[in-house]
Design a protein around this nucleic acid. Structure first.
Lengths: 209, 209
DNA sequence: CATATACGGAACTCACTAGTTCCGGATACG
DNA sequence: CGTATCCGGAACTAGTGAGTTCCGTATATG
């Protein structure tokens, strides 16, 4: 009857009544990430997220059908805010890698790892979550290192037969272990050591060059 | 009244009735580790552990006052069974490091990491657990690498100014990241790559030596 | 301005689990 | 051989949290 088909206007939601305010979704997802980082998946309750976002629990359930889906979307939401986006391009691999070490980048990585810590035990049992976490946490960082390494190969600065895929994970691995297992901050000094004394030698760049 | 003081005999438990069978403690702790590896700390229930150990829940509570204490002791229990204990001593750092790559060692490490995965989110809030996990998981592996690196320094094979403490964590870091984050098995091929193309170059050993 | 829906918030149901208690049977001590 | 304690197992208590429902209010459509 009233269904006049979508021909007239491409109105996305032609329904009646007050419309859902989707501009608040990011705030809620950010609140979820905060709680996740502080208490982990199992420690997080929907009430905590609702309270922190100054929203009602029913509002959250109107938008996400379960805790698992809320967390999944929150994790996926971490992909968005690239912290400084621009990759350094200094002409040398060492310069590029050291140029990656910036406070905003470090802070962003530390928060992502804290969220990750609260999810690790779920990853084995929830492939979709593992996938989302990989896309949001692991992959962006790896992609940056991959690009810098490929550029260095193109310049002939390092051998073409190094394993770029694996080398791109070296610094992220060292940082993750230090933060998650050793519970020590990955400060600039440590990152410089990881670049100078592990990644660069592994990539075939001589120490004192 | 009956308290005759401990002077007469140094009997540790001079009490009456059937005595607790402590020979079963290790079985129970192993069962706890299995459940922990499969479901994580929050997913683990005392009933699961009791059932798997073919014990009653009351028996577990007679020995450990809470879930937290049971887990703590189970984690500490992982320190015990050194898998092959003997460190290789081949005369070269490369030989020693490659000699560490043995199936039992790999399996032991993989299980410890699975247990670790279920604990990561607790570590930040439970310092005792973090300490126990460090002693049982992180430290033994690091100690082995540390020893081999120090020997190589003593032989003059690698420079004396390398950071042994940090280098000892390089391979464990790469393995942990691969298993926990990338959910990929750390097989022999990967371990060889980590030794040959990351740790050895970082220690100052030339590639094709 | 009537209707349908969203809002924040509170109350509610339902399932699950840490921890306790009790059972009948086994075992070590005196 | 009696007693105190252990055993595995099952029933019970108390607390918590996911998900639902209802409230009074706000807001967009017709």
């Amino acid at each position: 009857m009233t269904q006049v088909d979508a021909g007239g206007e491409a109105r996305p939601t032609p329904r009646l009544g007050r419309r859902r305010d989707h501009t608040r979704d990011p705030e809620i997802l950010e609140a979820a990430l905060d709680v996740l980082a502080e208490t982990g998946y199992d420690g997080m309750t929907i009430d905590m997220v609702a309270t922190r976002a100054k929203a009602g629990k029913a509002t959250l359930y109107r938008r996400w059908s379960s805790k698992a889906e809320l967390v999944l979307e929150a994790v996926a939401h971490m992909k968005r805010p690239a912290p400084a986006a621009e990759l350094p391009d200094t002409g040398t691999l060492r310069g590029d890698l050291l140029g990656m070490i910036r406070p905003p980048t470090i802070r962003d990585g530390e928060r992502k790892l804290k969220v990750m810590a609260g999810l690790v035990s779920m990853l084995a049992r929830t492939p979709e979550l593992a996938e989302a976490a990989h896309e949001a946490v692991t992959e962006p960082r790896a992609a940056a290192y991959r690009t810098l390494l490929r550029r260095a190969i193109d310049r002939g600065e390092i051998p073409a037969d190094v394993d770029v895929e694996r080398l791109a994970l070296v610094v992220p691995s060292l940082v993750a272990y230090r933060v998650l297992m050793a519970r020590t901050p990955a400060d600039e000094e440590f990152l410089r050591w990881a670049v100078e004394h592990v990644l660069l030698p592994a990539a075939g760049v001589r120490a004192g060059a």
